[in-house]
Structure formats: structure tokens, C-alpha cells
Computed example of a mutant assay.
Amino acid sequence: MDEKQKRILAVSRYYDSLDGMMKKYDRLGRKEAFGGGDQEEWKRWKQRAGKHLWELLGMDEMENCPLCPKLLERTELFGGIIREKVLLQTEPDVWMPVYILIPPAKEGRPGCVLAPHGHQGAGKYSVAGCREIPAVAEAIDRFHYDYGLYLAKLGYVALCPDARGFGERRDKAFQKEEEEAFMRGTCFHLAHMAEPLGMTVAGMNTWDLMRLIDYVEERGEWRTDDLGCVGFSGGGLQTLYLAALDDRVRRAVISGYLYGFKDSLLELNGNCSCNYVPGLWKAFDMGDIASLIAPRPLVIQSGCSDHLNGPRGIKNADEQVEIIRSAYRLNGAEDRLIHHHYEGGHQFHEEDLKEDLERMEKDCR
């Protein structure tokens, strides 16, 4: 026994909380899922569920204000893509920097897609494809993270914002010129600030994306009748809640973030604070929330070996997709829901994206 071990007592048995919490989840969870019936009953459920989800996320605590857009930079990239950096006010004294990737002009107005980011990619920098930053280039290679740039190459205007706590919006704890601080986010600190005020990290980011759609509409340069949102991991979280609560999102791609709460966020309880919404699990599972997107086109990407699926693996994701599929089937729109299984772990997949977006664009007409 070394000197450090002599200073503590070896514990022969632990009395931790997980087993009790799992059983409590089974008793109390998902009380407000759709109970079955016809399309009219589903529509009434969707209205009730959307209202309750809005309240759970703390959206009533968000404050509207003028956007006061400011163009900070305008840079031409390879292939004629223009990258604008725009600063928007999403709440009073709350500012969101956004990279807007604008493809070369073609006949007609281009479509636009919101591209929220996830974790471990320095916010908007990875999604916008800023490979000139070495740490960002590594994250792009690891997660296939530059889907905003890929969207611009496909001809879409891609809007890549910094979520609260990331990139240029990091809170004081991570405002350091260190690689780890630069690449990570301050969701933990945001949650501690927000939840006692009745707000949530997920709700604040959903609000900010709604304000970004306001900006797109106010600017008026791009199509919005088929406006999309594409997000990976934590960006998939943002896409899920935004599309569930804002019908202006006409098509959505959720990558690396669609699985059951019990396996992936209760049993795997070390996930980021942005995942956790007080009271949420008592009302809904993730499939119920995604059902609110029906009958709009939805693509879900799941990695068969993604560790975030939880101990039961891809089965956990498949179960949630079946919940969503039942809502699409009830609305006569089952062909608008696509679930891709990909080999490998936690990463974005662009190999089917062009075809999926084109198919969804037709469904929006």
C-alpha cells in the first residue's frame, strides 16, 4: 500500500444512486407521450406537447429585442464562397457571432441551412471549415465536422453560429488562450447560471437559433420555404429542439443525437450539462420530441458503434426512431422520415447528405 492509499479507507461496498434512479425513471418517465388515436388526436397532442416542451426549456423567460446586425468581416474563400462574420443580438445584451458561408451566385435565390455545432470543435470554426487553425483541423478530421462548408459547396447558404458558451461566446472560466479552453464550451457554467432563473442551456440555444431564422427572414436574400437545419452531436440536440418548436424549419438532419434518455443520459450520466432539462424525462422521451417535427422531412444519422447510444447500442436509437415513425405513419408521411445506420462511431456523415437534402427539398414543395 503506497502512502496515498494509507490516507484513505478502502470501501468494500458502494451504495450509489443509479439503480434507484433507473427504477424511478421506469415509474415516472414519459407520462405525456402520445397515447394513440387518429390524426386529429395527434394534432391536439402535438399542440399540448409543444407548449409543455416550450415551458420546460424555459422559453418564456427569454426576452425579445432588436437584432441589431453588424457585419464584422467579409472574406472570399476558395471556389468563390464568401464568408461573412455577422454579430446578432439575440436577447438584450446577449450577442451571437455567426459565420455565413455564401456560395457563388446562380440563377434564382439560394436555399439556406442553419448548421449548429456540437462539442470539442471550438464552436463555429469547425463547422465553417476553418482548417487554418491546427486544433480545429484535427477536430474536423476526427468528427467530419465541416458540414457547414460542405453545405456551401453544395450551393446552400450555410449559417454557422457560436452557441452560448462556445467559441467567442465562452464564459469567463474558459476565456483563456489555451487549446483545451478554446476547443471546449462552458455549458456546465451556463447551466448553473440559467437553471435557478428558470432557464436551460438547451432552451437558450434554441432561442438563439430562432432569432437566427428571424435574421434570415429580415435579410430577405435567400429562400425560406425549404429552410433547413443540419447538426451533429450537440448540434443535433439544437436541431432537434429547434425543429420540434419552430415550424419555419422545413427540413432537418439530426446526426449523432437521437437515442433514449434512460440509456444515454441517465445510465451514461457524465454527459454535458446542455443535455439536462429539469422535468423533461417525466414528460417525454427523445422520440416523442422528434415526433413534433412530423410531417416535415427528417433525416437521422446513427453510428452503429457510437458510444452515446448507450450500453444497448444501436437498438436504443432504433427504438426512438420507431416512436417517431409512428407519428409520420399516422400523418401519411412515413416516406419523409429517413434513418441511416452507418458503420463506426461518433461522427457526421456527408456521404448521403446531397441526395437527402434534394429529396427533402422536393417534399417541401
Rank of each mutant, 00 (worst) to 15 (best):
R74Y: 01
T75C: 12
T75R: 15
E76I: 02
E76L: 12
G79F: 12
G80R: 06
G80Q: 07
G80H: 05
G80Y: 03
R83N: 09
E84S: 05
E84W: 01
E84D: 13
K85D: 03
K85L: 14
K85I: 01
V86T: 13
L87D: 04
L88M: 06
Q89G: 03
Q89R: 12
T90E: 10
E91H: 03
P92R: 11
V94G: 01
W95H: 13
M96H: 07
M96C: 08
M96A: 06
P97T: 07
P97M: 11
P97Q: 11
P97H: 08
L101S: 11
L101Q: 12
I102C: 15
I102S: 15
P103S: 07
A105G: 03
K106F: 01
G108S: 05
R109W: 01
R109F: 04
P110S: 05
C112L: 11
C112I: 03
C112T: 07
L114P: 00
L114F: 07
A115S: 13
P116D: 07
H119S: 14
Q120R: 12
Q120K: 10
A122Q: 05
A122E: 11
A122F: 00
G123D: 00
Y125Q: 10
S126G: 15
V127L: 08
V127P: 10
A128R: 02
A128M: 02
A128C: 05
G129W: 02
C130V: 05
C130I: 01
R131A: 10
R131W: 13
E132F: 10
E132I: 01
A135F: 09
A137P: 08
E138R: 14
E138C: 05
E138V: 11
I140G: 10
I140V: 13
I140F: 02
D141C: 04
R142A: 14
F143V: 04
H144C: 12
D146P: 03
D146T: 01
